[in-house]
Structure formats: C-alpha cells, structure tokens
Design a binder for these strands. Structure first.
Length: 154
DNA sequence: GCCAACGTTGGC
DNA sequence: GCCAACGTTGGC
C-alpha cells in the first residue's frame, strides 16, 4: 500500500502556511468517493503528504505534511450551516470521512505544476495525468523521492 | 472567464 | 441499467 500521497487545497481556502501555523487540521470537505476511500482505507499514521496548492498562481507543491490521525467521520457532513453539509448522511452511517494531517517540513523550492510536467522522471505521476481531478492521490515512492530531491536542491 | 474532463443525478 | 443533463474541478 502506498505510503505517499498528494493532497490538494486551494490556498485561498486553506494554505500550507496555515497548516504550518495550525500544526494540524482535519481534512474535511472531501466529497468524492475515490478520494474518501484513499483516506478511509489506505492512509496510515505517519504517511507523508505532498501539500499541493490548486487554483493557485502558479499551482504546485508547497510543502510536506504527515497523516497524524486515522480517518474519522467528517463532522461537516452533519452541520447544516456548513457548505459541506450532506442531507443524505446518517449519524449512524456517515458517508464521508477525513484524516487529520499535520505540518511536517518546508521545502526549499516551491514546485510549480509546469516544472513537474516537464520532468521526465515524473512520467506517470497521477497528478500529471489528463483529467485527474482527485483531491487525494497516491504517489509512488520513486516519484516521491524525486520530488523531495527537487524540493530541496539549491 | 472559459471549457475539458469527469462525477453525479434522476427519469425512464 | 442506460444515458442525458447538470454540476464540479482546476488549469489556462
């Protein structure tokens, strides 16, 4: 099972800097079954997460996080005041789950999407595949290791 | 703001 | 179970 992940967030909504400030956050609001299943079934404590800024200028990888708590029901699905409220969710049978992630490490270089696309060593990275809209994606170790190298090189 | 590529919904 | 219509994501 994968030990490396990429999670997307719009920095206007929740940025890596905010995570660094908060130290940890529950990854609420995911309303896609594939992304939920990754969090619910596969993410383990200590898994490393590439924190990706989507809808950013430019979009790219901003830093490193870790999974700090296993998946639990996402409380926002029951909150009528939340934009993530889901009237179909039942308290005894929640539809949506989220993990807690914590700040882990800065990277020296922000890694723009375009530079990742141009890197031959990252061929096959799910993030780069056409039509991939998942907000939670597994990352292969070989790709993860290379991304770390890019992020820390001078 | 546009729009391609998906995912979801609901009528049948 | 099919599929058209609609909604969303997210790069550009």
């Amino acid at each position: 099972m994968s030990q490396f992940w990429l999670m997307k967030s719009e920095p206007d909504v929740y940025s890596f800097e905010q995570l660094k400030n908060d130290r940890t956050t529950w990854w609420t609001g995911v309303r896609n079954y594939q992304a939920r299943n990754f969090m619910m079934n596969q993410m383990k404590l200590g898994d490393t997460v590439l924190f990706y800024h989507s809808n950013a200028e430019p979009p790219g990888i901003a830093g490193l996080a870790k999974v700090t708590k296993l998946a639990q029901p996402d409380p926002t699905q029951f909150d009528k005041k939340s934009e993530y409220f889901d009237p179909k969710s039942k308290l005894d049978k929640p539809s949506w789950f989220c993990v807690e992630v914590g700040y882990f490490q800065d990277i020296k270089n922000y890694l723009p999407l375009q530079s990742l696309r141009e890197d031959k060593k990252l061929a096959g990275l799910l993030l780069l595949q056409k039509g991939t809209r998942l907000s939670v994606l597994p990352v292969e170790k070989k790709h993860f290791d290379h991304i770390i190298t890019l992020g820390q090189s001078s």
